[in-house]
């Protein structure tokens, strides 16, 4: 699997809506991938990173997808390539 070349969600600025360009499903377990899709995180959808970690750590990441807020770890966020939203 080729590494993701573009910008990834793990490094995206907070509060800016972005579109998911590609997800490296091989970078996570099947269960993790399925839960991401159940949250609605799929290629083509728009998400807004909202909060990142605390005093202790850069992780996890809270983001808005549609009308939901979900929390994921840096490992998944690093496997999600993003592009500017339309």
């Amino acid at each position: 699997m080729t590494a993701l070349l573009g910008n990834v969600l793990d490094r995206a600025p907070l509060g800016v809506t972005v579109r998911i360009a590609r997800i490296d499903w091989d970078a996570m377990s099947d269960d993790e991938g399925r839960r991401l899709r159940e949250f609605g995180l799929m290629e083509g959808c728009e998400v807004t990173p909202r909060h990142r970690g605390s005093l202790f750590s850069h992780e996890p990441l809270a983001l808005t997808i549609g009308r939901m807020q979900v929390i994921i770890r840096g490992k998944q966020a690093a496997a999600i390539e993003i592009e500017p939203a339309a």
């Binding site: 605390s54 202790f56 850069h58 770890r73």
Partner: peptide, 19 residues
């Protein structure tokens, strides 16, 4: 409670647990 889990996840990750 979920917010608390979010805040604590970073600390818990350091000892190998999760929020």
């Amino acid at each position: 409670m979920t917010r608390a889990a979010f805040l604590m996840d970073g600390l818990m990750a350091k000892v190998g647990l999760s929020g």
